[in-house]
Amino acid sequence: MKQSIFKIVSNKKLADITYEMVLQGDCTDITRPGQFVNIKLDGFFLRRPISVCNSKDDILTIIYKVVGKGTEVMANMTEGEELDILTGLGNGYELSKSGDKPLLIGGGAGVPPMYMLAIELIKKGVTPTVVLGFNKKSEVFYEEEFKALGIKTIVATADGSYGIKGFVTDAIKGLDYTYFYTCGPEMMLKALYDNTTTSGQLSFEARMGCGFGACMGCTCETLYGNKRICKDGPVLEKEEVKWAD
């Protein structure tokens, strides 16, 4: 974990209530895709945990949905403004288990971490297939960015207004894959847990206090014991996940 000040390079709307913020600062503690950052905002007590979409040299890209007052403030920030950010939080995805044909499945606000994951897998000589799930066409983002990486990119919308009609579980039917990585709403994670044929890694969300393991505010039970989603997660292996009744 590192605390540092980042400067906003750009902040633009990508889709319905979805924004991309590019920041410049010290990214040296971001070591794996699937990690997150925790952002201090003036006027708010708790920091805002946001997953890393990409990190290269001193440039950090995050994508966030405006879901409350904090993210609303973020959406109104402009180039040159500064943010106090904790970086390098969470365990991130373990790449070595991917096999040669991993499947990356992102749903809504769970799409961003798939981008850096795809880049890192490609660097290792592995070509992933990516499946992106959204509610409707106006919420779709980053399809072109994934395609530009030269990987097969499948988009599904729940209402059928774009791409495959249905959920990501419909979109992955018939695909041939060696392993899966996913991030998205818990209902989607559960559906994938039940409908995937291989092992995989799932990234969970929670209301957090600190984001770095101190407060026990986001502890979940797993088959391998209690884990703090912020510090021991947010990525859990499929084999250890224990679903609430």
Binding site: F45, R207, T219, N226
Partner: peptide, 23 residues
């Protein structure tokens, strides 16, 4: 003790609520 089920944290003006439950 595992403590309470999630959510255990909520934000307030200039403060926060926790209901960790002695994990």
């Amino acid at each position: 003790r595992y403590g309470n089920p999630l959510p255990r944290i909520a934000e307030c003006s200039s403060g926060m609520l926790n209901a960790v439950g002695l994990q």
